[in-house]
Design a protein around this nucleic acid. Structure first.
Length: 704
DNA sequence: GTAGGGTTAG
């Protein structure tokens, strides 16, 4: 019985024809050498295998081919080729193995040359070549070859379906799948996986239900693929049903299936189940461990993610670039720059720092932690960049106040013909809002509206409202919101409300706060903002009414906090906090620092003091702002004289500081965490008061 | 167990 009913050529016959008759005696079936050579090659003892091979008197074509495949697996193309040339005779399998070796080792031209020269090409030769062309992204050439094939069996169709899927042409793959004569389980699995990997998990699920109805017997390979679809589509219920079925059939013990299950539960926010399955898993390899680490990150359990990463590095399992990407993302989530730097050092040790995905994660880590200089250095040193690299650095510059530079980077990117996506535009609009570039912001928004390959999202409107609001263009901002194609959410109104705070626009604030109360009455930010707006205008009645409303609805505000990480320990402070064991010393140091700043001419900007108190008291509140407490603690806990302490005055945060050799972080009214900027060895400059554009810096020399 | 097509993390 034929395995594939659609087979129209018998490859065995073709290969037999291509062997010269004189070589037949070598092709003995029960070669005594074969099993030993096979065992050595299986256990990757290629050099031992080569020594063994050298001792075989006149080895047959099969043994040569086995050696060629062995060399191919470890990328030793030259040695494979030398053997191929030495072969006394070559059959189709030998040629096909050599073509595959060339293609797998990155030599497309050699592979093609061998294919063209090969006598008696069979269907496997053509399929190998189609697959090779696809791996080099040459899907058009693969397609051309596929249609020129003299005979096509199911495997050939499958290769072409995969070629389309792997090169983003999933619709072509699907039309091929729909019209192929005899799809088998491999075809179904390739097509389901192809939909999923091209962001069409819904279509993948539909196709799976069709497959299920065929009552075909599925293998662990197909199950592993389906479980991934469930994970990407957040189809936990289906995933659980499949899991039960897999336990009954013992397929759940398959290493691929069990890894898919770890991933499924992690992506569906069932991280405890995911962790349990990982613990029960027999072989903990790099893929499953990375799935778990990534899972902790997705579930905002960054500390646990790094704990797992540490466990893994202490084990014999070697992390790879994907593991590092996930670990670095968790450092980013914790604003743990020092830890991230240690992990960065490990990537260098393992030679993985050159990987583009690792580099991208590092760019995000450094810029999110306020170290835009190092982030830029990394970006500039990249030999290859993808869209994620550009988006990361543009957003990094935007968030660190280098708005104009972010725009310049975008110009560089377009000159290199890199097409922007939604995230690029968000980065650009963020740049305009943080650096108060109104005209630029309008231009970019128009560019976004005209870009046919990008959909204008809610977050883009939110950024644009922010830009207009910061520049006091209230009418234009409200008009933009009115004309939006989707319903505005609370974030958009809050962007406008915070503009009202900056520009003390009580009229607009009163009107729009009603809208936010309707959409999201639980959001404490609205009450706090509104109360502050009234406070800055001295309307104390409205202030107390707002606070009363907040209290009566049982809404509490999580106080903004700042922290400093020293020697891996996180020390957290809130405004006026005296609970820290070193509080007395902290306050003493802070008073000293404030004195120094005053000598230099620094004036507190008291416009945003939120309390019903006079100016002197407002200043006291601002002076013991949580960020400053964290900074002062950093000063007394690090060796004095080891560098400059930099005090940065930027944005509407008032005074933000950072200490050399320590890392500061904080969380604001919105509960969002941010890395406070810190710089090293900046020139001593005169202090300035609050501005809203590029940040300016003041350096204070720490007394030795 | 000489050669081609589908499986897990990012």
């Amino acid at each position: 019985m034929k395995r594939f009913p659609a087979i129209t050529a018998n490859p065995k016959v073709a290969s037999f024809r291509s062997i010269p008759a004189a070589t037949q005696p070598w092709k003995e079936s029960g070669s005594p050498w074969k099993s030993t050579l096979f065992r050595l090659l299986q256990s990757h003892e290629i050099d031992e295998a080569a020594r063994f091979f050298a001792r075989i008197p006149s080895p047959g074509v099969q043994l040569y081919t086995m050696m060629i495949n062995g060399y191919c697996r470890i990328n030793r193309l030259d040695q494979a080729f030398r053997l191929f040339e030495r072969m006394p005779a070559r059959d189709a399998a030998a040629w096909n193995s050599m073509i595959k070796a060339a293609l797998d080792c990155g030599e497309l031209d050699l592979g093609r040359k061998l294919f063209d020269e090969m006598p008696g090409r069979n269907v496997i030769s053509w399929t190998t070549m189609v697959n090779g062309l696809s791996q080099f992204g040459r899907v058009d050439a693969a397609e051309d070859l596929f249609f020129r094939m003299p005979l096509r069996d199911t495997a050939a169709w499958n290769a072409m379906i995969s070629a389309y899927c792997d090169n983003g042409r999933v619709a072509d793959a699907r039309s091929m799948f729909d019209k192929m004569p005899q799809p088998n389980l491999i075809s179904w699995t390739a097509m389901i996986g192809g939909h999923d990997q091209n962001g069409e998990s819904d279509k993948a699920l539909c196709l799976f239900s069709e497959l299920w109805m065929t009552r075909m017997k599925l293998t662990p390979r197909t199950y592993a693929c389906i479980l991934t679809v469930c994970a990407n589509a957040s189809e936990l219920q289906l995933g659980i049903q499949l899991h039960a079925h897999l336990v009954r059939t013992s397929y759940s013990l398959d290493p691929f299936v069990s890894t898919s299950l770890v991933n499924l539960y992690a992506k569906c926010k069932q991280i405890e189940d995911s962790s349990k399955l990982f613990t029960e898993k027999q072989e903990k390899d790099v893929v499953s461990w990375t799935a778990l680490i990534t899972g902790y990150g997705l579930n905002d359990r960054h500390e646990d993610a790094l704990k797992e990463f540490d466990k893994m590095t202490a084990s014999p399992v070697r992390p790879n670039q994907s593991t590092f990407t996930s670990a670095l993302n968790s450092c980013c989530g914790l604003q743990a720059l020092e830890r991230g730097k240690k992990i960065h050092a490990t990537t260098v040790k393992l030679g993985l720092d050159l990987d583009m995905f690792v580099k991208n994660s590092l760019i995000v880590l450094y810029s999110k932690c306020g170290d835009i200089d190092d982030s830029l250095t990394l970006f500039n040193c990249m030999d290859r960049r993808n869209l994620v690299s550009w988006n990361s650095i543009i957003m990094g510059c935007a968030q660190n106040g280098y708005g104009s530079f972010a725009i310049e980077l975008f110009d560089d990117m377009t000159k290199l013909n890199v097409q922007p996506d939604e995230i690029t535009y968000t980065g650009l609009l963020t740049a305009c809002s943080h650096s108060r570039m109104l005209e630029k912001g309008r231009n970019i928004f128009h560019m976004l509206e005209r870009d046919p390959s990008v959909e204008v999202k809610l977050e883009h409107y939110s950024c644009m409202v922010d830009i207009l609001g910061r520049c006091a263009m209230f009418e234009e901002a409200e008009e933009l919101i009115r004309n939006m194609p989707m319903e505005p959410n609370a974030t958009i109104w809050l962007a406008l409300l915070s503009a009202c705070r900056i520009h003390a626009n009580i009229e607009v604030a009163r009107r729009i706060s009603k809208k936010v109360f309707d959409i999201d009455p639980e959001n404490s930010a609205t009450y706090v903002l509104l109360s502050n707006i009234y406070a800055s205008a001295g309307q104390w009645n409205d202030v107390s009414q707002t606070r009363l409303m907040m209290r009566s609805r049982g809404i509490t505000k999580v106080p903004a906090a700042s922290w400093i990480t020293l020697k891996g320990m996180r020390h957290e402070f809130v405004c006026g906090d005296r609970s820290h064991p070193m509080a007395t010393e902290v306050y003493k140091k802070l008073d000293w620092l404030v004195g120094k700043l005053k000598e230099l001419g620094y004036i507190h900007d008291t416009r945003f003091a939120l309390h019903d108190v006079d100016d002197e008291q407002k200043e006291a509140v601002l002076a013991y702002h949580s960020e400053k407490l964290a900074l002062a603690f950093g000063l007394i806990s690090t060796v004095e004289g080891m560098g400059f302490v930099l005090v940065e005055i930027a944005g509407d945060l008032g005074c933000v500081g950072g200490a050399f050799a320590a890392q500061l972080g904080g969380s604001g009214d919105d509960g969002q965490e941010h890395g406070l900027r810190h710089r090293r060895e900046r020139a001593f400059s005169s202090p300035s008061t609050c501005n809203y554009t590029e940040p300016s810096y003041t350096a204070v020399k720490v007394a030795p």
